[in-house]
Simulated assay, not measured.
Amino acid sequence: MVPNVVQKGEVIAIDGEWWNSDPIKVEAEAKLSGGAPNVSDAFTINGQPGGSYNCSKSGTTNFSVEQGKNYLLRIVNAAVNNHLFFKVASHNLTVVAVDASYTKPYTTDILVLSSGQTADVLLTANQAEAKYYMTASVYTTQGFYDKTNTTAILNYVGSNSSATPIGLNIPEFNDTATLVKPCEAWLRRSIQWTYGHSSSLLLQHIRCLYHRLSFTSPVEFNYTGDVPNTLWAPICGTKVKVIEYNATVQVVFQGTNIFQSDNHPMHIHGYDFYIVGEGFGNYNESDHNPFNLVYPPLRNTVGVPVNGWVAIRFKADSPEFSCSIQKFYKFVKFDDVATTLDVSKGVLAERVPVGRDIGG
């Protein structure tokens, strides 16, 4: 973990969601209407919405700590379809692992986790003996979202049991500047930010670095500009890109301004990958010059920023199956977008992408 840091204990904080109705029915209704599912009625930490709700105020999740001790917090974003800010009042967090992979430690006062992402952070109980709120709140660029915040309490041993917890400032729901702030800690050596307008659906520009393949590039247009309606409708079909075994592959996820801007969590089934670059606006070849190739963070999921792009690299060393790059925009099945990469080792055959079936 971090050298010479003695941990007093471990705390698990699972950020989730709560619907007042049956979530299965929520999904079914969305499929029938063809629209987005109803947003949740509350976010939760370890199953409790927290002190903002009379129904759960007495059951708010409490984490007891001793002054001067170090604690390992394992934080999970188990929300279905939301990026979440996570903060602890008056405390800094030292990130040591993300998505179960160790990372070069960095200290921040706020985390941003995509759907399904995890983070291991060190917290030092170095404040006065009191109660402190920890909170999770949504980040989104959409107008239709769960506007609630969930809270838990960091409770110092010896604090006044009847005292009101110390509060904290919560970012605005669309605070993109705060969203990219933690990223700069591990990408500041490599990123030149270029600001565009807005971005939404994803295009995958795939390039094999060491084994050149004849790939078909996506249609080129001003992705983050004013996209004409003629480019809104996708082509229905499936295409497979064949990659040689052990090839080193670079993928640039480029956001577009089709329909509505958004921040997109992306992952590759069967692989972790290195994030080597990130920026706003339209990606171009000159952006690779400041790529971080020394200490690139290893991730399982990455959020493609609104108005921007992310460049990743991985080694295609899992033969005999395909891997699927998938966008989790909604939990409704027909809203998924996927591209299949077929990792070949001599003989091509029909293979099923790793992960769940996204067919109709």
Rank of each mutant, 00 (worst) to 15 (best):
N307G: 04
N307I: 00
G308I: 01
G308D: 01
G308C: 00
G308Y: 00
W309G: 09
W309A: 09
V310A: 04
V310R: 00
V310P: 00
A311T: 15
A311K: 05
A311H: 09
A311Y: 05
A311D: 10
I312S: 01
I312M: 02
I312C: 01
R313F: 06
R313T: 15
R313Y: 06
R313W: 01
F314S: 02
K315E: 14
K315V: 15
A316H: 02
A316F: 10
A316K: 02
D317C: 05
D317W: 02
D317N: 11
D317I: 08
D317L: 03
S318E: 05
S318C: 09
S318Q: 14
P319C: 02
P319T: 08
P319S: 02
P319V: 07
E320L: 10
E320M: 05
E320S: 11
E320A: 11
E320Y: 12
E320C: 07
F321E: 04
F321A: 13
S322Y: 04
C323R: 02
C323N: 12
C323T: 15
S324C: 07
S324P: 00
S324F: 04
S324M: 07
I325E: 00
I325W: 04
I325T: 05
I325V: 12
I325P: 00
Q326R: 08
Q326T: 13
Q326M: 07
Q326I: 13
Q326Y: 02
K327Q: 09
K327T: 13
K327V: 14
F328V: 15
F328S: 12
F328G: 10
F328A: 13
Y329M: 09
Y329D: 05
Y329H: 10
K330T: 15
K330V: 04
K330N: 11
K330H: 11
K330A: 10
F331C: 05
V332Q: 10
V332T: 15
V332S: 09
V332N: 09
V332W: 04
V332M: 09
V332I: 14
V332G: 04
V332P: 08
V332A: 04
K333A: 12
K333S: 14
K333P: 05
K333G: 11
K333H: 11
K333V: 14
F334R: 09
F334P: 06
D335Q: 10
D335N: 12
D335W: 12
D336Q: 07
D336W: 04
D336S: 11
V337G: 14
V337S: 15
V337E: 12
A338L: 05
A338D: 01
A338V: 08
T339I: 10
T339Y: 01
T339L: 08
T339D: 01
T339R: 01
T340H: 06
T340I: 14
T340A: 07
T340C: 08
T340K: 04
T340N: 05
L341T: 00
D342H: 11
D342L: 07
D342G: 07
D342W: 03
V343G: 05
V343P: 07
V343L: 07
V343E: 02
V343Y: 03
V343Q: 06
S344V: 13
S344H: 09
S344L: 12
S344A: 14
S344F: 05
S344M: 09
K345M: 06
G346R: 08
V347F: 14
V347L: 15
V347A: 13
L348Y: 04
L348Q: 13
